[in-house]
């Protein structure tokens, strides 16, 4: 499903954020990505989503090599991917509900069916009662869950979560991990990054550990 072959990423300034990484994630797998701040976790997830391109090596997602994918094909690849951004990227000029509708509008979903799905996604993350609010009035944890609802509403086959439990207390974090587990159970391939490994240990899943852009054991 996701395959990295000797991938390096050097940013324009010359800083090499990822160094010669090779790994594979199978369809339906749930994998954790650990590492200190600045280790390259976000960079790696961005390469999977085609937000950035590797400077060396190949990234293959869903059978497509992202090093050579055309500009026109990229949006269609991204529709198979649900993204939970580290900086949320919630739009504060619209309601909670409209934030969740965005991925469906982009695909041109029938409005009524889209609204039904959006409500289902909000229900799943426990925000159904808040759909008409502006997201600015949500707490940090609620905003995090709004991001999750938006990432899963179009039923992607791959879910990339960049520090989804970043600044939440442990009880909230566990809630959210339960959510991911339920997506995993319906066959979604999931990559979750975090700098704090304590949450991951409980789940007995594969952990990719990054240190200064390289894997460690």
């Amino acid at each position: 499903m996701i395959q990295f072959n000797q991938v390096s990423k050097r940013y324009p300034g010359g800083f090499e954020a990822l160094k010669n990484l090779s790994f594979q994630i199978d369809a339906g797998e749930l994998v954790f990505l650990a590492g200190h701040s600045g280790a390259g976790k976000s960079t790696l997830l961005k390469l999977i989503a085609g937000i950035d391109r590797p400077t060396a090596g190949s990234v293959v997602v869903n059978g497509q090599n992202l090093a050579s994918i055309s500009r026109g094909a990229l949006p269609f690849l991204r529709r198979h991917i649900g993204l939970i951004f580290q900086d949320h990227k919630i739009l504060f000029d619209r309601t909670v509900f409209d934030n969740v509708m965005l991925p469906l509008d982009i695909v041109g979903y029938d409005r009524r069916e889209a609204a039904r799905r959006a409500r289902a996604a909000l229900d799943k993350v426990g925000l159904l009662g808040r759909e008409k609010l502006n997201p600015i009035s949500l707490s940090g944890g609620e905003q995090q869950r709004l991001c999750i609802a938006r990432a899963v509403v179009h039923r992607p086959s791959i879910l990339l979560a960049d520090e989804p439990t970043g600044n939440l207390d442990r009880a909230y974090a566990l809630d959210i991990m339960e959510l991911f587990k339920s997506f995993h159970q319906v066959g979604v391939t999931i990559v979750i990054s975090a700098h704090d490994e304590s949450l991951m240990a409980d789940y007995g899943r594969r952990i990719l550990r990054l240190n200064k852009g390289q894997f460690t054991q």
């Binding site: 991204r78 993204l83 990227k89 739009l91 991925p103 982009i106």
Partner: peptide, 16 residues
């Protein structure tokens, strides 16, 4: 700008 950026990231085509 923000809306455009987010839309692109979650799969909006240029024509959208």
């Amino acid at each position: 700008r923000e809306e455009i950026e987010v839309s692109k990231l979650i799969g909006a085509t240029d024509s959208f």
